[in-house]
Design a protein around this nucleic acid. Structure first.
Lengths: 211, 211
DNA sequence: CAGCATCCGCTTTGATACTG
DNA sequence: CAGTATCAAAGCGGATGCTG
């Protein structure tokens, strides 16, 4: 990227991470940990492969990403965030939080990955009854199930099938399921948009932040 | 900007504010409040005027900026952040904070504005002795003096000459003065780089965060 | 197959000139 | 003051091909 040529902390930051795709590459590494080139391509649908290679080179030079020549069994290159790259998490989180209301628009063409959604859920929910027995909610959306669990007064999300039967399982399109979980839509509204559930929908009240 | 086409909160956010110059325009409005077109151009050296006009239109459509047709005495257009635009502050602050170490590189060509610097200082300093009488430090850098004051256990920066004589006045190039204030350089090092002071340099210790 | 590099058409940006 | 108009240059998207 061409430098903004401003002696300003924000401008200098954008000189490094302000290019198209750059923050999304960092998102992939922040959410998924070590990634192969192919994993990154899968998590960044639409990126041109030459751009991905170029950005990874730039991020390496900027000490945000490093390349690990892998252990014998797999024998592939892994990309990871450096400590300096990890320090971008707060900024990523604030931008992610700001973007949540924009999830109201789901273009039918939009690609969906469950790990993108789980990170937003993580930021927007909390456990309002930390002393009660933990609850589990499973969302059947995206490319793999999302499991929401209460742990130590916080909410933790993970991917893949729930280890134990969940207290509530939601199925349907991403937007209305998210709307219900985040408290933007009520149960009746979500059902009208095709959301189905199994279990106890009341557990959701425990997770939602007041606004 | 062409949409990333991802149903992801961060990607949706970047669809709106990820274009070149966009976050810097929002920075200007966040730091300076209402701005005229000309003020924006002055705070964004290097932007092409057609781009500024286009971005402002896009930001208006995205409900981040609005245009106020001004009161009779001035009779000019003012641009302001909407409430939705104000909600970008936390994200701006985190990116600004992340960029501070990059201020280590000051290209002689870089434009400098004092309000860019004061916002970074604001984020990086605190008052470690809130019960003692307040102190004032004045920095003669950028295009106008920066005044740092301790108020209620916080640090407040403002622009323009200090209302009362400061406990410490620093003069010199931006980078070494900032380095000294933020505790990256010590006094001897800063002096070696041309920084001069008047007053009591010890007040700086009170403002710096431990690392 | 993973990890790129090259080529080409299109879109975005930059620089400058001009206008109500 | 607050833009619009124009055009060249840079960046990006998509397709394809190369290499271990």
């Amino acid at each position: 990227m061409r430098s903004y040529g401003e002696y300003c902390s924000l401008a200098k930051a954008l000189d490094v991470v302000g290019d198209r795709w750059t923050l999304l590459i960092i998102r992939e590494l922040a959410l998924r940990g070590a990634c192969r080139y192919t994993d990154l391509r899968n998590g960044l649908p639409g990126i041109a492969t030459n751009l991905l290679a170029q950005r990874l080179r730039e991020l390496e030079q900027a000490d945000i990403v490093y390349r690990e020549d892998a252990p014998p069994p797999v024998a592939t290159t892994l990309f990871r965030l450096t400590p300096r790259g990890e320090e971008l998490r707060p900024a990523l989180e604030e931008l992610t939080r700001w973007g949540v209301p924009l999830m109201h628009e789901q273009d039918p063409e939009d690609a969906v990955r469950s790990h993108w959604l789980s990170s937003a859920i993580d930021l927007m929910l909390t456990d309002r009854r930390p002393k009660r027995p933990p609850v589990t909610v499973e969302l059947r959306i995206g490319d793999e199930p999302i499991v929401i669990q209460t742990v130590d007064g916080r909410v933790r999300t993970s991917l893949g099938p729930a280890p134990a039967p969940a207290d509530l399982v939601l199925t349907g399109a991403e937007r209305p399921v998210l709307g219900l979980v985040l408290g933007i839509t009520d149960l009746a509204g979500a059902q009208a948009l095709g959301v189905a559930y199994e279990g106890d929908p009341a557990v959701l009240d425990r997770l939602r932040v007041d606004r």
